[in-house]
Design a protein around this nucleic acid. Structure first.
Length: 670
DNA sequence: CGATAGTTGCTTTTT
DNA sequence: GCAACTATCG
């Protein structure tokens, strides 16, 4: 067969015959009732979903705005829209296409008053959340050693993932955390803010408490489509169930073997019990893989077969055994050598005509990017880090963002607090305490409290004049929000507040870099006409697609590689402790291990033609050298699909890797 | 209040 | 190896 999989970003007309048999095709195209497409990696799940979407549009069964399509990332949503428009040969206006979070935010803003917010509520990020939790912990006299804020936040987030508001939590075991949860929710309401979990939780509450509102959306969305269903959590499941109760036209696609977000509250059980939850559901199973070569598929299948508790699929391909090489496994001495080996291999591929933008390096943890970056810069290889060290999480960017927030939304107390004394203007802890007391007593935002305090003489001396100045500044900038372009306004704020000066005077080695980043932010703001649009974009999308259009080798975590495919894939750092990660083994029997194995499966199946796996004998972690032993996953790869390659230091004595492979891969230092 | 030096603890993965 | 917190002094 001459079937070839088109690159993810170049849509082609859908060839139904290659993806689906006749019965399956009918199920997908009949468009009536619930459908679950259960399929393995590389079987074209997203294409099936697109087919259905285009079918609905072409048959004009529904207006675009009557279709709700949920994808896992905003990037995937954009891509899907792009494909649909290509196939429809027209822009499609009004289609509701996005992530659960962005779609919920859209609904919530329309009914904000019903969840005790105003339509311009702020969406908090992790940093803001932690700050709040810390404040509450302190005022409740909770020992941060025994109950770290991170852990409290984690627990609260899990509750939200399950759709549990404080009143619904029954687990007495965590009574202290529950108290914090209650206060936290109250504080969010006062702040006119929501966090990520709230977007779903509040939307769920909105639907349950206001049947009239729910009815609007049930009528509106005649068709609902969901991608990556195995990664939905309970809240998302409940949300979908409410929405589809009327029309029952839900179509989900997913693969239980690719469920890798359990730590974030995703429930594989959602996909396992689909038929029970949506009666009369048609289940379509796709098992022919169109992506990977024979050996890659064999290696991945052999690996995932070690998991219990899966629906069980046998992926097959009609690609010939000769169509590709075995998976190469290579041991190296340390992280630096690993990077050099990968760099050498890529240069080799380049010489044989491979385009490096078809090559990806997939890693377990983000710190692994560094050595590859250093090496590729030295070799002059073009690369891009995807996800990685996030731009919007850097301190200077967050400070600048806080300035924009307080100027755009004067009630945003968290932003106010962040920049009150940044740069230093003599408004320290005591002034802040003062403001907090005043704000809490009258239930007003900090900025309002500040305005009141300067009318009285509760604040004296230098602090007083500083505060007056600061308030005047904010008011002036606020009055310019609609007049100036967002990028100009930011430049004005940064200069007038003394923020730029602060970093220019700073003699720390990273200060110039931070100034660069601020410039970059001003540049990014140029693409937006409204400050509010930008702030919404940042809180929901958060991804940094600056490097998006540049080609080059992609470096990313296996988690962010989900849904993508590459000609050649390097999987680095297959060592016990790193992959499977030590922390994932600690909890819940072998559930953590199985999720790691699924992650390995996801990683391997990203490759179309060639996969390389490497492991290092030592790694430089936390400034200390640590020896490591090869990952157990290496032993689980069927031997007939792998080939072991040795590298420099291993050359002399390490053919024993092969000889003793019945015992597995030994620690090269043994 | 702010600057500085010293101390801790941490890094799994992300919408 | 770094960032974020803490103690101490001016």
């Amino acid at each position: 067969m001459s079937h070839t999989t088109p690159p993810a970003n170049s849509p082609v007309p859908i060839d139904h015959s290659t993806c689906l048999n006749e019965a399956q095709r009918q199920a997908v195209e009949s468009l009536d009732g619930p459908v679950l497409v259960l399929a393995g990696a590389g079987t074209g799940k997203t294409r099936v979903l697109t087919t259905r979407l285009v079918n609905i549009l072409q048959r004009q069964l529904a207006w675009p705005s009557q279709i709700l399509s949920v994808t896992f990332t905003n990037k995937a949503a954009l891509e899907m829209r792009h494909r649909v428009e290509k196939l429809m040969q027209n822009p499609v206006e009004g289609l509701w296409l996005g992530t659960f979070h962005s779609l919920c935010a859209r609904i919530l803003r329309r009914h904000a008053e019903l969840v005790n917010r105003t339509p311009d509520f702020t969406i908090l990020d992790t940093d803001d959340q932690l700050r709040l939790i810390k404040q509450i912990s302190k005022s409740e006299n909770i020992d941060e050693k025994k109950l770290p804020p991170r852990m409290i936040l984690g627990k609260i987030s899990r509750w939200k993932d399950k759709g549990l508001a404080p009143a619904k939590v029954t687990n007495v075991e965590y009574d202290q955390i529950l108290i914090v949860y209650k206060i936290y929710q109250e504080r969010l309401q006062v702040l006119n803010a929501v966090d990520f979990g709230d977007l779903l939780l509040l939307c769920l509450e909105l639907f349950t408490n206001h049947p009239d509102v729910l009815a609007i959306y049930q009528d509106r969305f005649r068709y609902v489509l969901v991608d990556e269903y195995q990664d939905t959590n309970v809240a998302q499941y409940l949300w979908l169930r409410l929405l589809t109760q009327k029309n029952h036209n839900i179509c989900c696609v997913g693969d239980d073997d690719q469920s890798i977000y359990g730590w974030r509250g995703a429930e594989v059980t959602n996909i396992l019990k689909f038929e029970k939850d949506f009666p009369n559901a048609t289940v379509v199973r796709l098992e022919q893989n169109y992506r990977s070569s024979h050996h890659i598929l064999g290696a991945a299948s052999g690996l995932i077969a070690h998991n219990r508790g899966r629906l069980g699929k046998t992926l097959w391909t009609d690609k010939k055994e000769s169509s590709g090489d075995r998976v190469h496994v290579c041991g190296v001495s340390d992280g630096r050598e690993e990077a050099r080996w990968v760099g050498d291999e890529i240069e080799n591929l380049q010489r044989h005509g491979t385009d490096v933008s078809d090559v990806a390096i997939l890693i377990r943890a983000t710190f692994q990017t560094r050595e590859f970056e250093e090496c590729f810069i030295r070799l002059g290889l073009p690369y891009r880090v995807i996800g990685g060290a996030r731009f919007y999480e850097r301190r200077e960017i967050r400070d600048a963002m806080a300035y924009l927030r307080i100027v755009a939304q004067p009630h945003d107390s968290l932003a106010f607090e962040r920049v009150l004394n940044t740069p230093r203007r003599g408004l320290g802890d005591s002034t802040l305490q003062n403001l907090h007391v005043c704000a809490r007593e009258q239930r007003i935002p900090l900025l309002k409290a500040a305005m009141q305090l300067i009318q009285t003489d509760n604040v004296k001396g230098r602090a007083r004049s500083s505060l007056i100045q600061f308030i005047q500044d904010i008011e002036r900038w606020h009055s310019q929000v609609l007049q100036k372009k967002p990028s100009e306004l930011l430049q004005i704020i940064l200069d007038e507040s003394g923020y730029t000066t602060m970093w220019m005077k700073d003699k720390a080695p990273d200060a110039p870099g931070r100034l660069e980043n601020l410039k970059e932010l001003v540049r990014a703001l140029d693409d937006y006409d409204s400050l509010h649009a930008f702030l919404e974009h940042v809180s929901l999308v958060m991804d940094n697609n600056r490097a998006h259009h540049a080609g080059g080798i992609s470096i990313m975590t296996m988690h962010s590689a989900k849904g993508l495919e590459f000609d050649t894939v390097f999987l680095a750092g297959w060592e016990e402790g790193l992959f499977p990660h030590a922390r994932s083994l600690a909890d819940s029997a072998n559930a953590g291990l199985e999720e790691e194995r699924r992650l390995a499966y996801v990683g391997l199946t990203r490759a179309k033609r060639q996969a390389y796996i490497s492991f290092a004998g030592m790694r430089h972690i936390h400034g200390k050298w640590q020896t490591s032993i090869p990952s157990r996953f290496l032993n689980e790869l069927p031997k007939e699909h792998t080939v072991i390659r040795s590298q420099s230091f291993l050359d002399q004595g390490t053919t024993h890797l092969q000889v003793e492979s019945s015992h597995g891969f030994d620690d090269p230092w043994d």
